[in-house]
Amino acid sequence: MFNGLLKKLLRVLKRKKVIKLGFYGPVNAGKTTLANRICLDWLGTEVGRVSEIPHETREVQKIENVVVRTNNGTLRMNIIDMPGIATQVDYRTFMEYGLDEEEAKRRAKEATRGVIEAIKWLDNVDAVLVVMDSTQDPYTQVNVTIIGNLEARGIPMIIVANKIDLPGARPERIENAFPQHVVVPISAKTGENIDKLYEAINKYLT
């Protein structure tokens, strides 16, 4: 019985710490699609709603104890999917997607609150995946501000160049824009290169 307890204790001590991994990035970069992909791969279920309307995720979403097995070992993480970061939230954008004015204004308010929540959560994450859209110009105020602030706080990060399945994708632009950071091109939608992301998280963020 004593041996059994000792073995259990050793197993617990050997176990890697669970990392709190925050998903940050501009609106519609595919943060929730990536969270869903990881959860589908390892928990067998999706967790967040995805749509083409900006600011679909307006509340912080936590997915606890996701265990990922890679060639270099086991990775345990709590995923925190954040609302998209923006410098302006305009209700008229939502009306272009068919929402009425009242609903659009409510969404704009919630989206702004989501930006504040996401920023507050920076105090509670161990590491960050900055998710960017490979089809978009990476030199935006949102991207540069997030990365500059993460650097200043000393929070380790990986940049995920998402949407490489789309025809206009140019992940090399992101690599050229942020050469000091690890950039992993993936498609969260199709799962392309997702293994490389797991390896990179295991290597650089644990």
Partner: peptide, 22 residues
């Protein structure tokens, strides 16, 4: 650091990230 004008929200990200009061 957040300004609302007719349902449009301007957000000063840098000051929020620098933990200035909202």
């Amino acid at each position: 650091n957040i300004k609302v004008e007719d349902g449009v929200y301007e957000i000063d990200l840098a000051s929020l990230l620098n933990k200035e009061p909202i």
